[in-house]
Design a binder for these strands. Structure first.
Length: 276
DNA sequence: CAAACTCCCTGTTAGC
DNA sequence: TGCTAACAGGGAGTTT
């Protein structure tokens, strides 16, 4: 499931091929993949446009589309891969796969295919990316994201820390894999109330988050066996390792449910905080 | 403010 | 073997 590192890897990949390319056709095979505008308009507005800068905000891919004489309004194409989406280049002569929901033809005989088995992914075409990303919280890899900034976020909430880490309005880009990895690394139990995480643990969590996210980007993300991220070489330390031994202490990794999400923990390394 | 639940989807897996 | 039901999960929305 694409999270910050997987989306960042996708962005780096797209940057190597898309800027400068012009769209010659758009085929929407599953209209609900387009959040806005309606599919026909989406296609019409994209025809003849050229790709500009490509960025990431949280788990969103943000692509600037150059304006043209006929289409002067600034336009941004945003993509959220959600559970099962990924982007892949094909040749125009290739037959689209069963799960290719949107196909964008380019002026170099290639196509950009939005493959999405579970159809949860979405694309937006807007004049201002903020229309989509306005509610997002801090970028954990931004230089100004200090441990004090994390402390301020956690200190303001009594909810379970795992829920807080997954909340995109607080932190942008962290999902189930890296939330579990960071909490294990920092030795924090996922049910700990945010405001009860000690300053020392916040420091550890802050360092762990950044280190793990950077490391995962360098490894092109995590291949969690869902084939969404092909060739990702980040190896989780606890995620999906239930029943195996903790790499730090040897205790068996447990799997529990927190906030309706599978959560992997080492009960010895991640002590539950009960004292006030 | 927090937590739980519902919905959107389909491949995978467990159960019979 | 073949079928069905449960399950996973990001995020928006609704209910408790």
């Amino acid at each position: 499931m694409p999270e910050l590192p997987e989306v960042e890897s996708t962005v780096l990949y797209l940057r190597s091929r898309l800027p400068g390319r012009t769209i010659t056709d758009v085929t929407v095979r599953w209209p609900r993949s387009i959040a806005t505008p309606p599919a026909a308009q989406f296609r019409q507005l994209l025809l003849g446009r050229q790709f500009g800068r490509i960025e990431r905000r949280g788990k969103f891919i943000v692509m600037h589309m150059h304006h043209t004489a006929r289409k002067p309004a600034a336009t941004y194409l945003l993509i959220h891969l959600r559970m099962s989406g990924y982007l892949e280049f094909h040749s125009v002569s290739d037959t689209p796969g069963k799960h290719d929901q949107v196909i964008v033809s380019l002026d170099d005989q290639s196509t950009l295919n939005f493959h999405d088995t579970r159809k949860f992914g979405r694309m937006w075409l807007v004049t201002d990316p903020a229309e989509v990303t306005a509610g997002l919280g801090a970028e954990p890899l931004e230089p100004d994201f200090s441990w004090e900034a994390l402390r301020k976020i956690l200190g303001a909430h009594r909810g379970r820390i795992k829920s807080l880490l997954l909340n995109q309005r607080l932190l942008a880009g962290v999902g189930n894999i890296y939330a579990d990895e960071a909490l294990w690394s920092a030795g924090i139990h996922p049910l700990t109330p945010g405001h009860r995480v000690s300053a020392q643990k916040v420091r550890l969590l802050h360092a762990a988050l950044r280190k793990i996210l950077r490391r995962a980007i360098a490894r092109h993300g995590t291949d969690a066996g869902d084939r969404v991220v092909k060739g990702g070489r980040y190896r989780p330390k606890v995620y999906q390792r239930q029943g195996k031994r903790c790499l730090r202490c040897g205790t068996y990794i447990r799997k529990i449910t927190v906030a309706q999400r599978g959560t992997h923990i080492c009960l010895k390394c991640q002590r539950r905080v009960t004292a006030l």
